[in-house]
Design a protein around this nucleic acid. Structure first.
Lengths: 167, 167
DNA sequence: GTCCCTGCAAACTATTTGCACCGGG
DNA sequence: CCCGGTGCAAATAGTTTGCAGGGAC
């Protein structure tokens, strides 16, 4: 899709942000954290702890679940990762900070996840919150349905289907 | 709020639907199921398994978690209950079937839950799904923020705050 | 009487934590 | 060196399941 050189630059920038955060908090930069963060930044989609553990173990075979959880928590704290809880299973994480806000459209058959953004809805949400006297902090908006392929449309496919079709 | 006589009618009607479903499925109507369903229908808000267990035990002291879970699963199957998973904690359930669709506005301080419905957003969701070739089946839309009371507005309060402020 | 249902406890899944040792600054 | 980090295993939280006995139809 995008070529390797460009991605590497991106990952480097994110790693730098991560290291800056660690330093600021008086925390240490370790091999495990670096491996996990690098692998995480290199994924484009919505990645589970289990997947990240497997990826990290390619570089550092002995890392355990706990370290992955702890590292993703750090990444979430500094705004470089965002937790997403679709369906029933485990939490997945997506890179954040670089990209702007978006919501999700999920196929209930193939579990593929697409992203969308709609200003009209964003505005409407604000209006609703305000009308109840609320200060809107964040929201969660997920659309579940059947992608063209799942509906059996001939030649149909989820846009970007091939990218990262999980489990 | 509403008076007791009116609520009773409502609960009766829902119980009837529940019994109809059980019969249709060749399942049995038992004291435990009735107690749990009645108590559930009598709550207005978003109720957790734990709360339902406590309520059910007022009528039938020996019911266990498993029965409550199993009964709520039945109620969900027949469309009389809907699972809701806000925040981190346990799943809560709300009565469905009688009321029309709505989404939720949750105060992150006091955990109070309000309901809203906005046609514009519903339409926009459909449009978005269609634009990706999706068949929209269901969605999840939750707004998290601070209610007037939580923001410290003098005299402010969540609309309906007193009704059912959980945990 | 036949199955379904129930309560209990054990199993499970996803995540967190305690602890002894390891390693970055 | 010091103190935070790591791996492992055990602990937790929420929910599900297996099983022996009980109850609905």
């Amino acid at each position: 899709m995008a070529d390797a050189a460009e991605q590497t630059v991106d990952v480097d920038a994110l790693m730098e942000q991560f290291h800056a955060y660690l330093t600021k908090q008086g925390l240490k930069s370790t091999r495990q954290r670096d491996v996990i963060a690098e692998r995480f930044f290199a994924t484009d989609g919505h990645t589970s702890i289990e997947e990240l553990l497997a990826l990290a173990r390619e570089d550092a075979p002995k890392v355990g679940y706990a370290t992955v959880y702890r590292t993703l928590k750090l990444l979430t704290e500094c705004g470089l990762a965002a937790e997403r809880r679709f369906g029933e299973g485990q939490t997945t994480y997506e890179t954040a900070g670089d990209t702007e806000h978006h919501d999700h459209l999920i196929c209930i058959e193939c579990n593929h996840v697409l992203e969308f953004h709609n200003e009209e809805i964003e505005r409407e949400q604000e209006r609703i919150a305000r009308s109840f006297g609320f200060n809107l902090i964040r929201h969660r908006h997920e659309l579940y349905g059947l992608c063209p392929r799942a509906r059996g449309i001939k030649g149909g496919s989820c846009p970007g289907q091939d990218a990262n079709n999980k489990k």
